[in-house]
């Protein structure tokens, strides 16, 4: 399509809707409406066998209640699980950042002909199913695997009792980092790849050591990439339930597990909805914050 026809399409009202309509419709049907249903459900009572209680009861009263919100506020165990989820997500984000930064920098500095291959390797894990990759960690961390034997062998030298690697916070965190690493590498790479090599030459010329060049030039200029990667890792990590389910111990239940439990096991849809709303609001707030900070940084660089 030529620029002229694209421009004409953008001009016409019909054209605008033709372009923006399908994704908008998709978001309304599959995001906005379900979210509204969830909000509505949070103000209802649970049904006897799951689902919701009838909206108009036998006594003719409408089923509208704040009961689930009160329950959330009264019992601190939910707050604890939520805070624990935030801590796990933060640790995951930080670990991903520390691991992904050198990798992204390495790819960005590599000759152009190798970069595509290296990026392909970064996203290669996506080619196999998420759950299969999580189950694979059961084997890697299992008690009869080489890793557990090696770790416990070293511990035995110091007279420490063997520790199980599987079904632990350690297993959950290792897998969380593994699963989310590409989401940190890609935005960091996209940022670092655009850096002007002349800035580092200039900094060196003006007397900066390698360490100073990194902290004064490269890192501040990469902050938009850091924020983008952090948002892409932190938000999904906050709501995850499969990894603690499969690899975690009894104390590794996160907010995602709690929500899943409410819908599938306890069959308390209203309370599950309340927990989901808390998670969504927290994620939106953090994403908004990251986007705001990131945009400011990006504008600075773009104008330079």
């Amino acid at each position: 399509m030529t620029g002229a026809t694209l421009g004409a399409l953008r001009e016409s009202r019909w054209g605008k809707w033709a372009v923006a309509g399908p994704p908008l419709l998709y978001l309304v049907v599959f995001f906005a409406i379900p979210t509204l249903i969830m909000v509505a459900a949070s103000f209802r009572s649970p049904g006897e066998f799951g689902g919701l209680a009838p909206f108009v009861g036998d006594d003719g009263r409408l089923d509208l209640t704040l009961e689930s919100y009160v329950r959330l506020a009264e019992d601190t165990v939910y707050l604890e699980v939520f805070l624990k989820s935030v801590v796990y997500a933060l640790v995951t984000t930080l670990a991903c950042l520390v691991l992904a930064y050198p990798l992204a920098a390495l790819i960005a500095q590599s000759p152009k002909k190798y970069r595509d291959l290296m990026l392909l390797l970064v996203i290669l894990p996506f080619w196999s199913n998420f759950l299969i990759r999580v189950y694979a960690w059961m084997i890697i961390l299992g008690p009869n695997a080489a890793l557990a034997k090696a770790v416990n062998g070293v511990l035995a030298v110091f007279g420490v009792e063997p520790v199980p690697l599987l079904f632990s916070s350690f297993a959950v965190l290792v897998c969380l980092v593994y699963v989310h690493l590409p989401f940190m590498v890609l935005p960091l790479y996209a940022n670092l790849e655009k850096h002007d090599r002349a800035l580092l030459d200039a900094a060196q010329d003006l007397g900066a050591s390698a360490w100073q060049r990194f902290w004064r030039i490269t890192f501040p200029l990469s902050l938009p990439g850091v924020y983008a990667g952090a948002a892409l890792v932190f938000i999904p990590a906050l709501g995850i339930f499969a990894i603690p389910d499969i690899l975690g111990g009894p104390n590794d239940s996160l907010i995602g597990n709690l929500i899943k439990q409410q819908f599938l096991e306890t069959r308390d849809w209203p309370f599950g909805s309340v927990l989901s709303i808390v998670l969504t609001v927290a994620a939106l707030a953090l994403a908004g914050l990251a986007a705001w900070v990131g945009r400011r940084g990006a504008e600075e660089i773009a104008r330079a």
């Binding site: 002349a198 010329d205 330079a304």
Partner: peptide
């Protein structure tokens, strides 16, 4: 002597001002 240890300064063609 690496560049950072030389009493020499360069004005680059692209100016290379630190944008941040």
């Amino acid at each position: 002597s690496p560049p950072e240890r030389r009493p020499v300064r360069t004005v680059f063609q692209s100016y290379a001002l630190f944008p941040h």
